[in-house]
């Protein structure tokens, strides 16, 4: 009888601990503890907006103008709002990008902002990959255009979108092309144990109209 009681108590304790660990992941607490949170603050966020300056807001808080390099934000997901400054108020719409900052990594936004929804550039950030292969990292790439093609160092890689594609670690020159869109070129670094998330924004090509005479 006593043995059964003890076993039941032990089982209850295990279930209680497991339930606690399920709802309260240790990682989520540690990164907010003093001293220990310094291990989670080693993040960098670089934002550049070619051909213009933009004000930067991160989760509603202002962080000045581009180009900017923000360091030591706690690892996690952030909403970055870029509003291009212009003499004419309201000419450019504010744009919001969701970026994940991972400790010991650099995230980057390089975005040329045009009127309306015209964007040309790339958002890059790393997330941890716990099941990666040695000597390899992964990339996930999506674009705003249909039927885009991805080239690395001028060699065709795959058609977009790609998810968790294995690549050898190292630096690459990426080019994303799509019919009726301008090519997007940027550098990437593939790291072991990380997934590099790439969101590409391609600007549509300007349209030329040719007038053809009609007999009708």
């Amino acid at each position: 009888m006593k043995k059964w009681k003890s076993a039941l108590i032990m089982l209850s304790i295990i279930i209680l601990i497991s339930t606690f660990l399920f709802f309260v992941p240790l990682d989520g607490i540690i990164k907010y503890l003093p001293i220990l949170n310094s291990f989670y603050k080693n993040t960098t966020l670089e934002i550049t907006t070619p051909n213009g300056k933009s004000t930067v807001k991160i989760d509603g808080k202002e962080y000045g103008e581009t180009p900017t390099n923000i360091q030591n934000l706690i690892a996690g997901e952030y909403e970055i709002e870029l509003s291009r400054t212009s003499a004419v108020e309201g000419y450019y719409k504010p744009h919001i990008f969701n970026v994940v900052l991972t400790k010991n990594s650099t995230s980057r936004i390089n975005m040329e902002i045009g009127p309306d929804d015209s964007l040309h550039g790339v958002v890059l950030y790393y997330t941890q990959d716990l099941i990666g292969t040695k000597g390899k990292g992964k990339i996930t790439l999506t674009t705003n255009s249909e039927n885009a093609k991805i080239y690395t160092d001028d060699d065709f890689l795959k058609s977009a979108p790609v998810s968790n594609l294995d690549m050898n670690v190292g630096e690459y020159k990426m080019t994303v092309t799509a019919e009726n869109y301008q090519d997007l070129k940027f550098q990437i670094v593939v790291r072991e144990g990380y997934i590099l998330n790439i969101k590409g924004y391609l600007l549509p090509n300007p349209v030329n109209f040719e007038i053809v005479p009609s007999d009708g």
Binding site: I14, I15, I17, S18, T19, L21, F22
Partner: peptide
């Protein structure tokens, strides 16, 4: 053992 075996199994079931 709890953290790396039992709790994850219970967690996955519960989740």
């Amino acid at each position: 053992v709890i953290y790396f075996l039992i709790a994850p199994i219970i967690g996955i079931t519960l989740g």
